[in-house]
């Protein structure tokens, strides 16, 4: 172990300690010196430590939970605690047995409920994204073109709802949409309808809820790109004979594409896996993958199938997330120029 000239770390610390105390260093500082020495021996500089920290965070709070879920998705359900069979087992204390159960994934593919739930989630998320875009674009454009002193207060108004709990805001929509809620009372009061309309517990309510909740995620990136747009470009278009609406289509729209893509992904990705809004506002037949997952976990206590649902969802969403990453890095490169 100990070669000539190399002392074991323990030896070195015990021999070095009196010398350090003699030079008047407090214990905390000594620990720091020892730690830095250790890091130096391992080839770690301060720079690598700074980079390592977020990786460590992701490893602890994302990769390890993901690995656990992945593991459960390959196991068999059991009526036990935890409610699944171990993946790896010592048989008779002699050899290791690994049982990979692909049945959960097969089950997802075979039962049309899951495919329908995935497709319906994608549809609801896509429609909500389009609604957010149609509502958010004019708002973002308006704020970006407002006088400079107005922009910050207007943006604050967009962000303000975040200061209230998300759950309370969704509950507020129940109050608006229910049978004798604000909306029905208003419509009856105005004489538009005689009988209250069933808004709550329909797909309509889910669209309203998702669009409302995710609108800021659409507006903020759109605002960021529109605000950077040089107004001289629109003047140049007009100067070259382009009418205002056509100038919007040929200049503003293509140049705000990065914002449109960023906003759309920020709305679409969480909306696919949304659970709270369909659970509270949706009807019994509003099929979304988030609710299916919840039912598998808590009603059926089938953790392996629930985990398989989660993993499959992740795989579905990896493609748009990668696209988002790609666009962001490309935009950063363009900005760096």
């Amino acid at each position: 172990m100990s070669r000539k000239g190399f002392l074991p770390l323990g030896d070195r610390l015990s021999r070095g300690a009196p010398a350090l105390t003699a030079s008047g260093l407090d214990p905390l500082r000594r620990l720091w010196v020892a730690g830095a020495a250790l890091a130096g021996r391992l080839g770690l500089s301060g720079r690598t430590l700074v980079i390592a920290l977020p990786y460590l965070w992701l490893l602890l709070f994302f990769l390890i939970p993901f690995a656990i879920v992945l593991k459960i998705s390959f196991s068999e359900p059991l009526i036990a605690r935890p409610p699944y069979a171990p993946l790896v087992e010592w048989v008779e204390g002699a050899y290791l047995e690994i049982r990979l159960n692909l049945g959960n994934y097969l089950f997802l593919a075979q039962d049309s409920l899951y495919a329908a739930a995935y497709l319906n989630s994608l549809k609801i998320a896509a429609v909500s994204t389009v609604l957010c875009l149609l509502i958010g674009y004019p708002i973002a454009y308006g704020i970006a073109r407002a006088p400079v002193t107005w922009r910050m207060p207007l943006l604050m108004l967009i962000i303000l709802p975040f200061w209230t709990s998300f759950l309370i805001r969704v509950y507020a929509w129940i109050g608006i949409l229910k049978q004798n809620g604000l909306l029905n009372n208003l419509l009856i009061g105005l004489g538009v309808i005689d009988q209250p309309i069933q808004f709550l517990h329909t797909d309509f309510a889910v669209y309203v809820g998702i669009t409302y909740s995710y609108l800021p995620f659409m507006i903020l990136p759109l605002y960021a790109t529109l605000e950077r747009l040089d107004p001289a470009l629109l003047e140049a278009a007009a100067d070259l004979g382009c009418r205002p609406f056509k100038a919007f289509l040929t200049v503003t729209l293509p140049l705000s594409l990065p914002g449109i893509l960023a906003g759309s992904l920020l709305v679409f990705i969480p909306a696919v896996g949304e659970f709270v809004i369909p659970a509270l506002l949706g009807g019994p037949d509003t099929l979304m993958i988030g609710r299916v997952l919840w039912n598998e976990f808590f009603n059926n206590r089938d953790w392996p199938v629930a985990s398989a649902v989660a993993i499959a969802l992740l795989i579905f969403l990896v493609a748009p997330i990668m696209a988002f990453q790609h666009i962001q890095s490309r935009q950063q490169k363009a900005d760096a120029r």
Binding site: A232, A236, A237, A238, D239, G241, R243, V251, P254, L255
Partner: peptide
């Protein structure tokens, strides 16, 4: 007469070239 119908063209100080 609005700018897009004037027989006039302008060279902008920032050039205002369409970046895309």
């Amino acid at each position: 007469i609005p700018p897009y119908e004037r027989p006039v063209n302008m060279m902008f100080q920032s050039y205002a070239l369409f970046p895309h």
